[in-house]
Design a protein around this nucleic acid. Structure first.
Lengths: 195, 195
DNA sequence: GTCTATAGAGGGATAGAC
DNA sequence: GTCTATCCCTCTATAGAC
């Protein structure tokens, strides 16, 4: 339940974001959203066309937020390798999973091009962003010449997304960190010493 | 709808396995299971205590099957690196995702220790299996000495699980393969030439 | 063992009062 | 804009006939 410093529309979006993260699209009911937002049925159907419309607004905002957070880390100081390491080691609520990536396991999200679009665009943007970082490092002679930026980027994002799976399966964040350390151990020898 | 060469109990389990894979636990209703199995309500509640009980039987079987499939690949011919490569490149219905891993995004599965157990045990077994393979290669001087088996194993499994996420987000298996190629590119220089 | 009938609760949406 | 009332359908389970 949110304080009244937010508009009803805002409270609905924020409640939906939380529930999509916790329970996914299929597992989230309008009733649960309304209870958490402290609003009635009428408010929701006044501001949004229905559950899919509200979910779309929530997903778009979550996607934007993720991009902003990642962008801050990736444009930070250091060599390409160091910035990738900063991304991989950044603080995360590992057991909650990725609010964007988890939606790919939701049948109704995948079945809807509109709901899937922001998920696709965000993960695609992330891969491109990491790929150009790898290419940058390669051109500086900081990464092994035989590496392909897009491939390494996909492996990095996949390790993170899969790390959430391992952590949630075991009920502990440890597996996530173990996988990240493994990837960094493979990535480090491929990176020249910073100069 | 299954042919009558299977018992009703079998048909119920198989239907449940399919639906859990396609729609997850939250997205799967007893009604949908019964329709697919061509059975009535009574049959299900005669053979199983309810939805969680039937799901447990289905998840256990899926987990067993996955272990058997993976074991076959990992005990195949070749060096440790080659066997890991065989595991990573093995044929997959990528867009369907991992029938075991996808359950970690299901709130009701994660909330139940009983339902989560087979998921945890399977992914844990897989990591241990890959870890000992990496260690084996390291002892043979086929992998760089500084690598840690458990870390590399976690990175491998995470890349696969995350590869499904990327593929489903983009609606194409390509991203999965790209990530696998990236990981293999990082893994290959760390492996000595086969002798 | 398998079926249908039934039931209470919740999902998702609409109508209309205020 | 927000509320409550209402609707039809589905969810999960139980009861009891065959």
């Amino acid at each position: 339940m949110y304080s009244t410093c937010m508009t009803t529309s805002e409270r609905l979006i924020e409640s939906t974001r939380e529930l999509l993260w916790e329970r996914g699209y299929v597992g989230t009911s309008p009733k649960a959203i309304l209870e958490r937002a402290g609003a009635g049925q009428g408010s929701m159907y006044h501001h949004f066309k229905g559950k899919p419309d509200l979910a779309l607004a929530a997903i778009r905002r979550t996607a934007e937020e993720m991009r902003a957070t990642v962008e801050k880390v990736l444009t930070g100081p250091g060599t390409p390798y160091q910035r990738i390491e900063a991304y991989l080691r950044r603080e995360r609520d590992v057991l909650r999973g990725c609010p964007v990536g988890r939606l790919t396991m939701d049948p109704d999200v995948i079945a809807s091009d509109e709901l899937r679009a922001p998920v696709d665009e965000t993960l695609d943007w992330l891969r491109e962003r990491l790929a150009s970082l790898v290419e940058e490092g390669r051109e500086q002679g900081r990464f092994a010449a035989h590496l392909n930026g897009e491939e390494i980027a996909a492996a990095i994002v996949a390790t993170v997304q899969g790390g959430y799976v391992l952590a949630r399966a075991s009920g502990s964040p440890a597996a996530f960190d173990t996988g990240v350390r493994g990837l960094l151990a493979l990535l480090a020898p491929a990176a020249a010493r910073e100069g």
